[in-house]
Design a binder for these strands. Sequence first.
DNA 1: CCTTTTACCTACTATGTCAATAGGTATTTA
DNA 2: TAAATACCTATTGACATAGTAGGTAAAAGG
Lengths: 131, 131
Amino acid sequence: MISTKGRYALRVMIDLAKYSDGSYIPLKEIAEREKISKKYLEIIVKELVSAKLLEGVSGKGGGYKLVRSPDEYSVGEILEVTEGSLAIVACLAKGAEECPRAEGCDTLPMWSELNQMIHDFFFKKKLSELL
Amino acid sequence: MISTKGRYALRVMIDLAKYSDGSYIPLKEIAEREKISKKYLEIIVKELVSAKLLEGVSGKGGGYKLVRSPDEYSVGEILEVTEGSLAIVACLAKGAEECPRAEGCDTLPMWSELNQMIHDFFFKKKLSELL
DNA sequence: CCTTTTACCTACTATGTCAATAGGTATTTA
DNA sequence: TAAATACCTATTGACATAGTAGGTAAAAGG
């Protein structure tokens, strides 16, 4: 299940896509528009900046803005930054220790199939489709 | 993400489908074959019995068995019993309080679309396909 | 230079869930 | 009556979630 963190991240990105004219938007504005705790958003936005999905500038006139156009962001990459992994089962997360049962696991093919479906869904869906 | 609880439930069901000849299989056997803590399985199996996906009988010669044939179980119903909800976001879980933002939510259509995909996947997939 | 506005940083916390474990009681068969 | 089994209640340690609190650093305007 996608947590609020991932959902909030997506909403911040959508908000920026909608309301930015190229200048920087302060987080305070976004928090008020989206009615999300600004303090909590700070944590989320920081991760988006680290991942280079956003650019942040301090000081008066500062704030955040997108670094690409909305059709160049996939929903998948936004969620992956904040959720860590979108894998449907632990053994399919990247960096997971290899499952000793993988060989001969009756359920692995099903998990892989679904995992692929979800991955495709999220990475084909662009931010621009959510405006 | 599907937890071990749901994954174990599925493996118990598969185990029963594979090794039962109509008689009752004691949990001890299943736990040993699947290398899962018997104590933990007790919790899981109890829920499957409550949901009438399994039948349990106490005493010598007792154990558990399926109540239908494997092609009459969907993976979805098995997972729903143990996971509670398969919804991809909280607001789409059944029994969720109505989201005040639903009207005009930019992301809801996407969540609904994916939710439907996952639901279909799990409910069309039958236990018999995992043997 | 000083003040304001903003991002950025570290730390803490309450609540809940996960994945069990512990130690029993009830039931059925031989 | 004894053994094997399911079934029941309670507890636990570790971790994640969803925040809150209280600062420091940076940039711009006057």
